[in-house]
Structure formats: C-alpha cells, structure tokens
Design a protein around this nucleic acid. Structure first.
Lengths: 246, 246
DNA sequence: ACCTCCGTTTTGTCTATACATAATAGAGAG
DNA sequence: CTCTCTATTATGTATAGACAAAACGGAGGT
C-alpha cells in the first residue's frame, strides 16, 4: 500500500517525529514512570510508518534511558526518566597538549599496601586485597591542573607492581596496559585541605572540582582514581542529546 | 543472495560485531583521528552483511562520538575520540521528591532587563536583547540544595514576561512551555561569595558545584541557567558506556 | 578564469518482509 | 492443584530494495 512518504513534511525524519511524540509527554511529566507505551504495531498504525521506523525511535529512547523495553510485555516509561547528558572527560595529558601548553608530570609517592576497610568499601573489593597507591601531579606550563590519587588492584593488574610511574602517569599506563569495560564517576566540589592545597600551590580552602572514577573489568574493580582540579583551572563541558517535546 | 545468517555465531548481534571491529582500533589508538573508515559498501562486503546493518553500527559509533560522518566524503575517526560519559542531571524538584524529602521553592528576585555586553556574550545573543532575570532557591527539608540564577530570552519566549515565577521554578516552567532542542553545560567548582553564601545559608568561601546550562531552540539561545549547589549537598554521578575493543 | 549544470559517490531515511527470542497466558495431562 | 507444553504477543535483528540529500568533480559554455 505504501503510504505517503512523509520524510519531508518539514518536521525532520519520521523516526524523530515519533521519538519526540513519545519523549514529550515523558519529559513533561504527563506520562508517569511505569506507564505503558503503545506497542510498535500500534504506533505503526498511528504514524503510518513501518515497524522498523517505529523500532528505531523506540530503540533510541531506550538507549537514552527514557523508556525500558521487555519482550512480550511491551515498553514502559523508565522509573528514572531523567535528562541525560554526555560529558567528555579527557585524558589530562592529551587535553593539555591540545590546548598548546606544555605538559609536565611529577610523581609524588608510590607504595604497596593492602586494602584497609575504608579502601575496600570504596573499591568494592575484599579487605586485604594487595594494592599500589600512586600519588602524582599534572601541570600545564608549570601550573598544577590536576592532582591524582590512585589505587590499583594488584590481583587484577600484577604488572603494576613493577612499574615505577616515575615517567608515565598511572592513568595513561593503565589505558595502555589494561582493557576496561566500564567506569563509574562521581563529581563533586570540595575545599582543598592543607596538604592538598600545598601540593597544588593554592590557598587552603580553595574550591576544587573532584572527579572520582572507578574502573571495572568484568566484575572486578581495576582502579579507583581521585582527580582533583583547582576550581579556577578546570571545568567539564558537555552537551545534551536532544530529548525534547515538540 | 542472502548469505549465511550469522545472527548467532556466538558473538552477539552482527551490528555489534561490526561496531566492535571499528571501535577497537580507534579506542586502542591504532587508527588516528582523521583516518578514513571504510565506506558502508566496503563494510557490507567485508562482513557479508546488509548495508542497513552496517549503517546501524556506524550510526551508533557516530552517536557515541567515536566517528564523524559526511555525505559523499565518508566516515572518519573523530578528532576528539575521547572517553565519553553519560551523566544524569536531574530536575531538582523531582530529585528531592524521589529521595523522600520535602521540596520547597522560593523566589528571590525577578526583573526585566536588556542584555549587557557580558550577558550577550555568555548567551550568544545581540546586546540589548530583552531578558527576564530570575533568581530563586530550591530546598529539601528546609535545607537549600540549589540556588538558581537564570536569564530568559524574551524575543524567543515572550510569555515569560507575564509569568511571575512565584510558585513555579523557571526551569519547570520553561520545560512546560518551551520546546528546546539542545543544551550545553559547563561544570566547575567555585567558592561561594558573601551574597551567595548568605542566600544558601553556608559559610562564605564554601566550595560549590556550579552547573551552567545554555539551552537552544534552532539557532537561538532560549535561556542561560546558573545552578549553584553547596559542595557537601550535591554530587553528579555517571557511568561510562562500554566503548571497548575486543 | 569563472560559472553553471550534471553525473557520481556516500551517507540518510524508509519500507516490506522474515525469522529469532523472550515471556506470558492458557490448555491439557497427571 | 500442579506441572508441562503450546500458542500468542511484543520486541530484537537482519535483509533487499528504493529514493533522498549533500557534496564533490568534471564537462562545457561564456
């Protein structure tokens, strides 16, 4: 039967129109979490589009986290139908190089330990797990831009026991030597304590942007990093994917 | 000719296999930024898959930012093939409600102005553009969790001139009244100045997490928001999408 | 030199169809 | 009543074919 091709009815691609039509009531709150979304076949009829086109729209909504989909059961508004933002977190050395400044790296300390209770909880590994703790400093044109405190799980990365990290940052080294599958981040603002402030060359109490990153391989934590940036020397930028009504 | 259906050769969907085959050399650094990626037709042959399947793989890589695609020119490794993280930025009222606390809102000030040079630059609009400036406060169980300073472009949202914002936050109001297509964020740490600290009920100099959000419609800035969170009362969390080789 | 028009390449979108997969509901056997 | 098998429903993946849109390159005219 081949309905009217409405590719260009002036509102963009059909799958975008469908996506918006579903996203709008979710984002605006009219459709509460858990509410069922019309099935692909129903939407196919409603929009006079093919199921593939409808599927593309719903698949992208699911990827964004606005909806969840279950075979046989249908599609539903996600419990946490929230705004998602994609942020870029750079490798600090690459970032400095890109901005045309001179990058320099300095190792502050490195020691072998085993996880105490606090570290075990933070890394989600058993207490007593062998670790390497590395502390170092990244600078651009002589100004500290990041202080890095890192714990590496030696049961997963035994090679780290031999690495001195005197010339290469642990972040870069891990990127080169260990595959990772997923990472979790927490971003917060903290005031620099006396020791941190001294290492960064800023006044005590200076507002700092702190990124905590936990990296996984399969089910095991590889490394836990605490990246501290003086507030006036670093910012994160990101851009929303368009999740909009209308 | 309908090649062998290799849906289940044990390595997951075909589009995933193709996606990984392209992502691996990019993530590992073997394919440098700017390098050209085989065209869809070439990949179609190489993987004995249909162009739609190849297209799905490349489209998802483009969405992740690993590659950029140009009609007629082809697909290329993105210049900034960096780690991407998906962060969730919640609507503050919804977030408070979800955590079981009592949300309250208070308008601090609201005035009509025109954009001065600084505001014009920040919003990327001509100086002299009519604006509404709104300042307000979001609390949970009586504790301030966010201070909001917002500029709204009246040439795009003339209805905002009539809204008092005494009962509804400008963020929520805009979500209900204005479609937007994209937003840009900057996240940084700042020390609270005297006025800000007073409004939030914290000590002057307290480290704060500041989110600046600029929202667009087509090519025009709708609104610029500055969301200030006391450092000990708010953090962002995020999780990497698995962009892995192998 | 420059401009216009046209053919080619590559990605972008859409359709109709097919089969796979997961989960549930219901029928039938014990 | 409980277990098992089967039919049904909805999503997941894959395909071939088609046309659209952008951008480049070259032919030909001025």
């Amino acid at each position: 039967m081949s309905r009217q091709r409405l590719t260009r009815s002036g509102n963009g691609p059909v799958y975008e129109q469908i996506r918006r039509a579903i996203a709008e009531p979710i984002v605006s709150g009219r459709w509460r979490p858990g509410r069922r979304i019309p099935s692909e076949m129903e939407l196919t009829k409603a929009f006079s589009a093919s199921r593939m086109t409808v599927n593309r729209a719903l698949t992208s909504l699911a990827a964004e986290g606005l909806i969840v989909r279950w075979r046989r059961r249908g599609s539903f508004v996600a419990e946490r139908a929230v705004e998602l933002s994609v942020f870029q977190i750079w490798d600090i050395a690459a970032e400095v190089a890109r901005s045309g400044r001179t990058y320099s790296y300095a190792l502050i300390g490195r020691e072998h330990t085993v996880a105490d209770d606090e570290q075990a909880a933070a890394m989600d590994v058993p207490a007593g797990t062998p670790l390497v703790a590395v502390s170092c400093r990244h600078s651009a044109d002589g100004v500290v831009v990041q202080l890095e405190q890192r714990l590496i799980n030696l049961t997963v990365v035994p090679q780290a026991a031999e690495e001195t990290f005197s010339n290469i940052g642990p972040g870069r080294w891990l990127l080169d030597h260990v595959p990772w599958s997923e990472a979790e981040h927490v971003i917060r603002a903290e005031a620099a304590d006396a020791k941190t402030a001294g290492l960064m060359g800023v006044a005590q109490g200076t507002a700092c942007l702190v990124i905590e990153r936990r990296t996984w391989q399969a089910q095991t934590t590889i490394t836990l990093a605490r990246l501290i940036h003086p507030g006036d020397r670093h910012a994160l930028t990101g851009r929303f994917r368009p999740i909009s009504g209308t």
